[in-house]
Amino acid sequence: MAVQKALPKRTRRLGDSIHAWAVMQAIPATMALPFEAFVPFAPIFENQELPVIANPKGSRWVARPGGHWPGPEHGLHVRDSMAQAAGAERDRLGAMLKPLPGLIRGGKYVVVCPNSAIGYKEWPETSWSHVIEESLGLGLDVVIASGPARERIRAPHGAEFLDVSVVGLARLLTRASCLVAPDSGPVHLADALGVPAVGLYGATSTVTYGPYRDKSFCIDMHEELYPQGERYSSARHLPDVDMAMMGIDRVLEAMKRAVASDQDRVRRDLCLGC
């Protein structure tokens, strides 16, 4: 009888790479392999428990021999479906990344990442402008980190633009009060670093594609915007959805809750250090 080989899967996307790392580090020790990380992302996975190899072809996770991954499934987070195929231990899938050394900015601030790898997931520029203006009015510093090779959005005076790599973004997020972004890699990076993530989900669902550890600050309109009369699937993308239907007030409210939760965490940490 032929021996079934493990099935390697590769990705060059940040969010999928974070899921791949979480799955690989949750594989039982008897099956463990080094994690092959896409070269631009490799430094964020170093100095963790799992050895890392930088690979120019992409990040890699491995389904166990005979393991089948059908792709994202309705009602199941993509990381959980990957873990099933890999034979990973589910109770270890929420592992956090250790912060990278080196600060990019001092003080407390909100990070806005307006871009996504897929355009139909993005929120309109005018909506971002309103949220940034309101945030500045509340006395919050706002740092806008656009995607690589993406044009900067128009933003009110007072917002700060920073052009950073993925590694730079990881350092920037370390001290952030929260992140606000559409469904994208930065959402998963913030979540893995323990930073509150206000994810904007309409074209996709948080059930399958949201932050793995904490979805409580995300806005999910996917089911609400789903085509009427069709059988619902949390794994389905909605390329024709109008993300402008996500109200500005709703995003601001979620952001305020995220900032307040981070302040509570800081106070708790200070008390523990007393």
Results as ranks from 00 to 15, higher is better:
A2W: 02
L7W: 08
P8K: 05
P8E: 07
L14W: 14
S17K: 08
W21N: 02
V23D: 00
Q25L: 06
A26Y: 10
A29F: 10
A29K: 06
T30N: 13
T30R: 07
T30Y: 07
P34S: 01
A42C: 07
A42T: 08
I44Y: 00
F45E: 11
E49Q: 13
K57P: 00
K57Q: 11
K57A: 13
G58K: 03
G58R: 03
G58L: 00
W61Y: 12
V62P: 10
V62R: 09
A63R: 12
P65I: 09
P65H: 10
G66Q: 03
G67H: 07
H68A: 04
W69G: 08
W69K: 15
P70H: 10
G71Y: 07
G71R: 12
L76A: 00
H77A: 02
R79I: 10
R79D: 00
M82C: 04
A83Q: 01
A88H: 02
A88W: 01
E89D: 11
R90L: 05
R92A: 08
L97E: 03
P101Q: 11
R105A: 06
V111C: 12
V111M: 12
V112F: 05
A117H: 01
I118R: 12
G119K: 13
E122T: 15
E122K: 11
P124A: 11
S129E: 15
G137Q: 09
L138C: 14
I144Y: 06
I144G: 08
S146D: 11
G147F: 13
P148M: 05
E151M: 02
A155E: 12
H157L: 09
E160S: 10
F161A: 08
V164M: 11
V167E: 13
L173T: 03
R175G: 15
A176V: 06
A176C: 04
S177N: 07
C178A: 15
L179P: 13
L179D: 02
P182C: 06
D183Y: 05
D183G: 15
P186F: 04
V187R: 02
D191Y: 02
P196G: 01
P196W: 02
L200Y: 02
L200R: 04
Y201L: 15
Y201E: 15
Y201Q: 08
A203N: 09
T204A: 15
V207P: 04
T208K: 01
F217A: 07
D220T: 13
H222C: 14
R231Q: 14
S233G: 10
S233R: 14
S234D: 12
A235R: 13
I248N: 01
R250V: 06
L252G: 12
E253V: 00
E253G: 11
E253L: 07
E253M: 05
A254H: 10
M255F: 04
K256G: 00
D264Q: 15
V266P: 15
L270M: 15
L272H: 10
